[in-house]
């Protein structure tokens, strides 16, 4: 006898992979759609999604990241020589560059220590999103391509 579920309840179709969709839909067409969508993603001028009072939070979070980095340097886990073992221990996408592996270690350890929680609570951004952004930004800062950032000073917060 046919079961009720088999007769009346259709199984949810398995979602198509984003990358498969990219391949099937025609890369240029999809890229055009994405470019249009992202172009409208910039918030209107005057919007302050991240308010000035978070300036102190930036300092605290930056210091928290530094402490994690310093700790890993002290234990030899953030040195370029340790990179080959580092990327696998992080449990994320394989790092191609030494800066990627160090950045992944710092961001993951900082996440586990709750370093992102304060900024997350002030801005409504998810800690896991901040972790990913810190990872990418640290890698960019450590690599020679994006190393110019570290020559900058920090100005007074707007409205602070």
């Amino acid at each position: 006898m046919e079961r009720f579920e088999e007769r009346y309840v259709r199984p949810e179709p398995k979602p198509q992979s984003f990358l498969d969709y990219v391949g099937g839909a025609g890369r240029s067409a999809l890229t055009g759609a994405i470019v249009y969508g992202l172009s409208t993603a910039f918030p209107p001028v005057g919007a302050f999604a991240i308010p000035a009072y978070t300036a102190l939070t930036y300092s605290k979070m930056g210091y928290g990241l530094y402490k994690v980095y310093e700790e890993r340097l002290a234990t030899g886990r953030a040195s370029p020589k340790s990179v080959s073992g580092a990327s696998s221990s992080v449990g994320e996408a394989a790092a191609n560059q030494p800066s990627d592996a160090i950045a992944a270690q710092v961001a993951t350890a900082a996440y586990e220590h709750g370093v992102f929680n304060d900024l997350a609570s002030h801005t409504g951004l998810e800690s896991v999103v901040l972790k990913e952004m810190v990872k990418g930004s640290t890698s960019s800062a450590l690599s020679t391509v994006g190393g110019d950032l570290l020559k900058f000073a920090i100005g007074k917060a707007v409205g602070g």
Partner: peptide
């Protein structure tokens, strides 16, 4: 790397996160 360097990284990361937050909505709608 000094504490100031990580503060700079934090500011840039927050800017990226801000863009992600709005870009996510736009991408999903396409």
């Amino acid at each position: 790397m000094e504490p100031k360097d990580f503060e700079l990284i934090t500011i840039i990361a927050a800017r990226k996160a801000e863009l992600y937050k709005s870009a996510k909505q736009e991408l999903l709608s396409t």
